[in-house]
Design a protein around this nucleic acid. Sequence first.
RNA 1: GGAGGUUUGGCAGAGUUGGUCGAUUGCACCGGUCUUGAAAACCGGCGUACCGCAAGGUACCGGGGGUUCGAAUCCCUCAGCCUCCGCCA
Length: 424
Amino acid sequence: MLTIQSLREEKDRILEALNKRHFDAHEAVEQILAWDAERRKTQAQLDETLAQSNALSREIGGLMREGKKEEAEAVKAQTSSLKAKSGELKEQMQGLEQQIHDALCHIPNTPHADVAAGRNADDNVETFRSGDASTLEHHKKPHWDIAEQCKLIDFELGAKVTGAGFPFYRGKGAKLQRGLIRFFLEQADAAGYEEFIPPHMINPDSGFGTGQLPDKEGQMYHMQDDELYMIPTAEVPLTNIYRDVMVKEGDLPIKLCGYTPCFRREAGSYGKDVRGLNRLHQFDKVEIVQFAHPEASYATLDGMVEHVKGLLEALELPYRILRLCGGDMGFTSAMTYDFEVWSAAQERWLEVSSVSNFETYQANRLKCRYKGNDGKTHLVHTLNGSALALPRIVAALLENHQDETGIRIPEALVPYCGFERIDF
RNA sequence: GGAGGUUUGGCAGAGUUGGUCGAUUGCACCGGUCUUGAAAACCGGCGUACCGCAAGGUACCGGGGGUUCGAAUCCCUCAGCCUCCGCCA
């Protein structure tokens, strides 16, 4: 969430930046600043009252030591009104703080200056394109047909055992998954990211830290008996490693990665978009996360974009990179690049990665800070990206690398899969 | 799941017959003296957040609540860690 300090100091810049999202925060911000002023006034009164109260207590302590019990009792009598007053003020303070906190939670992050205004996906800016997004490939089969024909993925079995959107991968389909996971992890390892295998469930504090709670509560599977959530992405456990941590400035950037399955309820999704591997309740993903110095975070973001480019090049897939416009960006992001691969058979782009800089928005929730050379504490910048999400990569591989007799596995992937082709 | 113990500032570790304890001390860290440089030694500084122009004030000793004029110290509750028992991949 935004810091109250930033709201006080650069209200106009923030409101203008939020306009790019078509998010009108005028009213909310004015309300917050009014509450904030009231809070400060209340605190001044409360502190004064407590100071008086503390002084009297010290006096009583002194008198008791000297054995002047009667005088002590007399002073005690003075404390009751102070106590009532401070109790009342404390309640007011807590109420105001809660209101401010709740309101701040409902204001999204401010887009970076380079982010375009824009309302939706149509306004995103293509910044890079690689390969041929041909539309003249009607002979190619969609991945769901190949998956069934070659017994790579069994959607019906998944529906029987669990439900729609929970497929079984089998045979070469399973090996392909495993190969991709290893390939992605080793690429991340080579790029200096430390590998983690995080828990697949998280507590509410962690959900809040990265911004899934309270806004996206309905998107996560919730274990109510234990008050835990299935992770929607490894971003959540990985980023929360540094919740409430004071890092050393010299340790930045910190680079983490991890493979996990991801669980998403995808409430409200429907239609052809959810066919086959396009949208699942459980899918596999390798995530990269960085904690960066504020001055370096956009260079860091560029580096992460380059990393993901390298993966897609190695898989020989046609792809493009979009810088999301304000209206299409996630709630917590300041700048996001989406990677989309071309689906030859579906004749559409499929999002396979999203790389974002959250600046201090997550760090403020996480309370992840470092002590600078100036002796002051500052919030770090957090970034993350998919590198990569598997299902649509598999779809793109099956649809783009088809020939008359089967699927060709890209050279870079062969050592990880253990086979060169999937025959029809 | 049952029983007991434990949880203090970056780390280690005092403090639990309630009263100048936000907290002794060591290490780490920062600055200085000394030195060609470094180490050692010595001197000084060093938790976080909020309010305040400042002086200063307030809060925080796992989280929450309570008793009291006053709580790190007493009580309740929740959580983490450790030990033992039970169960189990």
